[in-house]
């Protein structure tokens, strides 16, 4: 999926960083992150209730990839696909990577992003609301947890993105 030409350079950064990484390498990394977050925040699953088996499609609009999250308490999974191979799903959350990240970081309000059309949701609305509330109750920052997986480089990139988001 080509990136829009008008997009600021920093918004292209996630796609540029991911571009040289083949899918077969991204998939285990995504799964590792998901497993780690699931273990660190087990109370998250209680808030999800019946939606631990819901298939959430996450679509960052400025990255040529989509993710399928199934937040099963025992074995939460996150699979990565090309947009052309979008898998079957129950709910969709779509927005720029930076906005999705800022929600995970606890610095953006999902309702406000929805009001100004930066966030699009589809499919099972209850499932999306449930996931949003569950993630918002996580102590600290899920975005920081993800960055930690990549060590100092991950934290540096997150710091950069946070500054951009704050501007």
């Amino acid at each position: 999926m080509p990136l829009p030409k008008h997009m600021p350079k920093f918004e292209k950064l996630p796609a540029l960083l991911l571009k040289p990484v083949p899918l077969f390498l991204l998939r285990p990394i995504a799964q590792h992150i998901t497993t780690k977050i699931g273990k660190k925040h087990p109370h998250l699953f209680a808030r999800l209730g019946k939606h631990t088996s819901t298939r959430y499609l996450i679509k960052p609009t400025n990255i040529p990839l989509v993710a399928l999250l199934i937040p099963n308490q025992q074995t939460p999974t996150m699979q990565i696909f090309k947009p052309s191979q979008t898998p079957a799903h129950d709910a969709v959350i779509e927005g720029k990577f930076l906005f999705l990240l800022s929600m995970l970081d606890g610095t953006s309000d999902g309702d406000a992003l929805f009001f100004n059309r930066e966030l699009t949701i589809g499919g099972d609305t209850e499932a999306v609301v449930c996931l949003r509330n569950a993630l918002d109750d996580v102590e600290g920052s899920v975005a920081a947890d993800i960055a930690d997986v990549f060590g100092p480089a991950g934290r540096t990139i997150l710091g950069f993105l946070r500054r951009k988001e704050a501007q």
Partner: peptide, 13 residues
């Protein structure tokens, strides 16, 4: 109730 809310966005957004 969110269980009865649907959002539908067409190709023109």
């Amino acid at each position: 109730p969110a269980s009865q809310v649907k959002y539908e966005q067409d190709e023109d957004k």
